[in-house]
């Protein structure tokens, strides 16, 4: 099992944070462009899922899976979006994203009066804690791919 990369988007689609752990394939475009593409795709999937669903969609879009990787999506009621790419066999990724939101984002961004919300996160402590959480998780396995 392995974790590839993580995006955090604000309500308005600003990329607040990006980090990668085991990413082999580079997109070949800048991080900003990539973030825009990613956000656009998520936005489309979200509205697609909500429109096409034959039943009340409740939580809406949760994840998708290709033959090589899974993309997990967590959106908070405030519109914050957490996107984590893992391999296809990883389990409980949603829990990990919840943890990331509750124990890291709220603690070290929201409670830090010098962190402006809706702007890219500068706090070093936040970055350390994200890395710690990911590396502690059973999903993270540092294989040299």
């Amino acid at each position: 099992m392995t974790i590839h990369n993580l995006y955090i988007f604000s309500k308005n689609g600003v990329l607040l944070y990006y980090n990668e752990w085991n990413r082999l394939n580079k997109s070949g475009i800048t991080k900003e462009e990539e973030a825009k593409l990613m956000y656009g795709m998520l936005f489309s999937i979200k509205s697609f899922v909500n429109k096409i669903s034959p039943l009340d969609p409740k939580e809406g879009f949760l994840y998708y899976k290709t033959s090589k990787y899974s993309l997990h999506y967590l959106e908070t009621p405030s519109g914050l979006k957490f996107v984590l790419n893992t391999d296809t066999i990883s389990q409980n990724v949603r829990e990990l994203l919840q943890q990331l939101y509750r124990q890291v984002y709220v603690e070290y961004v929201v409670k830090n009066p010098f962190c402006k919300l809706n702007e890219p996160i500068q706090s070093e402590l936040f970055k350390t804690k994200v890395d710690e959480l990911m590396k502690k998780s059973p999903i993270y396995l540092n294989r040299s791919l």
Partner: peptide, 19 residues
């Protein structure tokens, strides 16, 4: 919430007096 012993302790030092 600003920093701890494992991270960069100097980052918000200048703003600390306010807190």
């Amino acid at each position: 919430h600003l920093a701890n012993n494992t991270s960069n302790n100097k980052q918000y030092l200048r703003e600390c007096p306010r807190l």
